[in-house]
């Protein structure tokens, strides 16, 4: 099976088995460039597992994951985590993983590690090219802080930030690594209504202004339905629905997976009665 022409990420029958548990059972999906694709599903459906396969934390037992950053196909399956990241896949985590004892700005500098001049000798003697590359990295870091509205926090330790700001910083850090595809694992988790609305706007802006493709795991249906171009629903490690937000919302299997068999029937009879 060849990857489809107009796509940034294609998974072909990705399965992963942990002992006796089949966590992912042949996931196939196609993600278009510069779109926001949401992956939803009940707890334990395999959403984060799929993320971990894409970003190289897990190795799929079967299937292929093809990333197409600039028109050529790269199979991610066997690549180490840092190589996948260098190709342009960035991610955030369900549990925030910032470099807590480093400053906010330093967090963003670390993300640019493979773009800056990291040769030992030029760094120790501060050659002209080293200083230039550092200054550019710092400039880039300020850009992302401004984008997130966090300039005044630049020199604070990342670990001391309030929760909502830490979430934003994680997104900023992922973006500072100049990805083509960014995987956000429940970015709105623990945020209040206003904060998550702001985050939505930021995600949309990322796509509009930076052409990045966004893969999003989210429980908050409001977020999913308002910003996604494409929704994939997982249940028990399988894709049970795949389409636009409207298509998915009307899919009976999705309603069943979320509400359970009986509740779904009840809901249907109620809506019929009302109609």
């Amino acid at each position: 099976m060849a990857a489809k022409a107009d796509s940034i990420l294609v998974t072909e029958g990705v399965s992963i088995r942990f002992g006796g548990l089949l966590a992912l059972a042949g996931i196939s999906l196609v993600m278009r460039p510069a779109t926001i694709t949401a992956i939803i599903g009940p707890n334990g459906a395999g959403k984060t597992t799929l993320f971990n396969c894409i970003t190289g934390f897990y190795r799929p037992t079967e299937g292929r994951i093809i990333f197409r950053p600039d028109g050529r196909d790269v199979v991610l399956n066997r690549l180490p985590i840092h190589k996948i990241a260098q190709l342009g896949v960035a991610r955030t985590y369900q549990n925030i993983r910032l470099f807590g004892q480093m400053s906010v700005l330093e967090n963003l500098l670390v993300a640019q590690h493979h773009f800056v001049n990291h040769r030992l000798i030029s760094g120790i003697f501060q050659t002209r090219s080293f200083r230039k590359s550092e200054a550019e990295a710092v400039e880039q870091a300020w850009f992302w802080l401004e984008f997130m509205g966090m300039e005044q926090l630049a020199n604070q330790d990342a670990g001391t930030l309030p929760y909502g700001q830490q979430r934003r910083l994680e997104v900023a850090r992922a973006m500072a690594s100049r990805p083509r595809l960014i995987c956000l694992d429940e970015p709105a988790a623990g945020l209040n209504l206003q904060e998550s609305e702001e985050l939505n706007q930021l995600i949309l802006k990322l796509r509009e202004e930076h052409g990045v493709s966004v893969l999003l795991i989210e429980h908050h249906m409001g977020v999913v339905m308002s910003i996604s171009d494409h929704v994939v629903v997982l249940d028990h490690g399988e894709v049970i629905s795949d389409g636009t937000t409207e298509q998915v919302q009307q899919d009976e299997r999705v309603i069943k997976a979320y509400l359970g068999e009986e509740d779904a029937e009840e809901l249907q009879s109620v809506t019929k009665g009302a109609g």
């Binding site: 934390f57 004892q101 670390v110 993300a111 590690h113 992922a174 690594s177």
Partner: peptide, 17 residues
Amino acid sequence: RAWEALREDEIACKALG
């Protein structure tokens, strides 16, 4: 910075390339 990042969180460090 990479050393310190590694000390703070090895997983996040790898996932940044």
